[in-house]
Each structure stands twice: as structure tokens, then as C-alpha cells.
Amino acid sequence: MSYTVSFERMNELIQSLQSNYKIFAPVRFEKRGRYSDTDMVRYANISCVEEIVHDEKSDFSPKEVVFPVTQAILYFTESEFMESRVHDKKILIFLRSCDIHGIRRLDNMFLRNGNVADFYYKRLREKVKFVLMECHDGWDTCFCVSMGSNETSDYSMAVRFHDDSLEIDVKDEEFEPMFGKEAQSDFTPEFVKQNAITVKIPDIRDKDTLHEVYNLPLWQSYNSRCQSCGACNAVCITCSCFTTTDVVYSENGRMGERRRVWASCQHEDFTAMAGGHRFRTTPGERLRFRALHKVYDYRQRFKTEQMCVGCGRCDDRCPEFISFSAMINRLSEEVDKLNEVKSK
């Protein structure tokens, strides 16, 4: 069923939801952006609908709700381990279609890769229900349509924002009773049908071609551009790498914690082993690694779609104006040339 709900009424509903749910949505952090007098929009706990930034793309993705930047996994006392705990509430996330697809990609990585589900991801992920935020046209760096992530039916509720009300499509029985007294509407979410950018997934047909792709001069062209800052990894909804570190709390070193923090494959030490040996020592090689993971490796492994969902946040966030979508299109062109040579 669909309803029209005023902000005022929605806030009452949010308030009642809060007894069972933590509600996350893109929130504006004024003047907290990278550059002076710019804002940052990222996911945070909300308590009213006015806090939700619905008319801008968030700088950071909602992945941090299910995969926190820093997460304690074990606590140590002198003689024992203790598993870290999480809050006992369920989680509601306001997010866009691309991000819902993105979290499905994370599900593959954390729940299905290898033969063991990741305990820490799973315990948060199981709590989550999605509230789809409708996108009208997307933004200039979006390429969700090319990645097939522009549409979804995978949500509990979907919302369209108006000035002081919202339309809401409630699919989940759990939430249906809450809206019993609201005015019904015929709202169903619409989806972006076309982006300004079209991205072609490279048609890499065999290992030989893959190895030729490794040697393309394309990658070297980024050596002088990419600063290996890792911002693209941080904002990416599908980047799932982490590093585990132990810390001690006190001077005497008796108590401590094992934690995971996000890791970036663009950082020089991502592959560094004790003793100092490291692989992929140039920015170009690291960008190649990331690009192929997003549009080739993941797809090969899971025999599904590519990993990238086309949210375009990496383009938005890159301080060196490197466009991932442009990189993939350059790559596809090169692969087409390689395929053409082979077919002759």
C-alpha cells in the first residue's frame, strides 16, 4: 500500500519506530567537507525526516552502517578473549537503488566468499531493512543504468520526498499497521532510466586477454595523476577490504582489543608483508587492480554481475579528477581493440 504522509506525521512515526530501530540516512555535516566551507553528507542516525538529505548524493555510502570504519572484534583481558557486542536494535537505512545493489555485493563478499560467513558483518546485516529513496535523474557522475543497478524491488519501504510531505510505498508487513490511518496514494517509486554517462563493461574473454590488459599503457598514464590517497575506496559502496590490528588500552598493556578498520588497495602498504615485500608498487598497477576487481574479477568469481554499481562517488571524491567511468570506458575500448586483433 502507498500513502501520503506529512513530515510532521512521519516524525511521529519515526519516533515510534525508534523504540525498535536505529534509523540511518544521509545527513549533512555542515562545513565538515574536504574543502573549507563545504559540507559533508554521510550516513548517520536520524530522529526526524528533515535531517535526511534527499536531494544530494551523499559523499559516503551507507556501507558504514553494516561495515563500520572501525570495529572492535575481540576484547582482551589478561587471560581471555571476549567477543565484541552490538546494539540490540534493528536497523532501517534510507538509501538509493544503487546502494541497495551495493549492499548485495557486500553480502556476496562477506557472507558467501569462502566457506564461512563473516560473523561481524552478518550480525549487523541481519538487522537491516531498506527504505528506498527514489532518484529522479541521478547526478552527473552516476552510471547506474549501465551497471543495471538503477532499479530494485528489494526494499521494505520506498519514499518520494516533497516539500513538507512524503509519499511512501510500504511493502513490508511489519510496517503496514503503522500507516493504517494515513491517506492512501497510488505512489510507486520511479527509477532513473538514463544517465548522462554510459559505461561499457570491458569484454575480457580469456586469461590471455586479461594479461594483455595488465600491460596496457593506460594504467601507466595514471602514475603521475593518482596520489594513492584511497578516497575512492572509502566512498565506494562495494569496497570491502579491511585490516585487523591489535591495540592495548593502557600503559601496563594488560587490556586490549582486536579491531578491524577499512583498508585501501590504493595504499602502498596494502600488500606489504612482514619483511617488507610488496606487490603492485605503482599507482597505475593499484588502479588497475581496483578497476578490474570492480568490472571483471568479482564477476568471474561469483559468476554474476560486475561489482561496481555505478554510484559514481569515486569520481565525485577523487581529489585529482580521475574519473572511474572514463577509466572503464578507456579500458573497454582497448579490450575491443585486442579482441578485434584476435578475431582476425
Partner: peptide, 11 residues
């Protein structure tokens, strides 16, 4: 702030 990939540093 400029260097931070995650926005851990802010003004």
C-alpha cells in the same frame, strides 16, 4: 583534512 580519505579529519 585534505589528505584524509575517510573524512576523519575535518575543520
Amino acid at each position: 583534512v585534505l589528505a584524509c580519505p575517510t573524512g576523519a579529519w575535518s575543520r
